[in-house]
Amino acid sequence: MKTVTLTVKKEPELYLECETLTPDAFAGKKADEIAKIPAYQGREDTTLGEYFSIAGQAGASAAETQIIINGDCSKMKYIGAKMSAGEMIVNSDTDMYTGGWMTGGKLVVKGNVHSFCGLGMEGGEFIIEGDAGNYLAASYRGDWRGMQGGVLRVKGNAGSDICTFMNGGEVIIEGNVDIHIGTHMEGGKIVVKGNANRRVGGQLVKGEIYVFGNINVMMPGFKHNRDVELEVDGTKAVFAEYLGDLGERHPKRKGETVYGKLYLKK
């Protein structure tokens, strides 16, 4: 694996849209070629070289490429979006859409991320060492295809409306979350190790939500089914299992109605 190191040399006046900042776009390129890759600021076309000093070179393919980004990226959007393989380490906070539509590889953000990160993620591993904003691992505005696969881990807290329209994959929030968790969810798994606020699993059709701490107010559409001992993300405990959202349409499988499940640690 070869490493490319980018260091921010100029802060964008507005926001820099760098959906080209991925191992896929860098693969097979040397530093001077990477500097010429397009990026966008507002309505103006620019290049990555305009904002970053670039050292090292990329591997022959995305899988053989590691990208390390230093400096303040808090005004940069779409970092790692659509990446399919390889590794990225961002030693900074990042702006919206970080790691959106990832299909593979590993993306680590050492700081906080803004809202709409990990949107429609299909695969790979996305680790956020700080906090995440709203709409984490949700669907794009208007879309009904949220997170499909992969693993997304937040070591801090997350905001509201996370995992909206989630269809698959796994999201672990080690801290607390705000309102609207897994709205319209039709598959996948959400683990909240801290507390959740309100409206957890609204219109939940399928999938599982685990909450280790408290839920401030439960949705009325959930019914207690049983208590069950489970191992969730390395923690063995007894969980109260709730079925829901009973106000929502539910599919049938082999004659049995499939419900979404909400587990509350006892």
Partner: peptide
């Protein structure tokens, strides 16, 4: 209006 997702990634000139 109700399909913003139809325009995704089409914002560059």
């Amino acid at each position: 209006w109700f399909r913003p997702e139809d325009k995704i990634f089409d914002s560059h000139k």
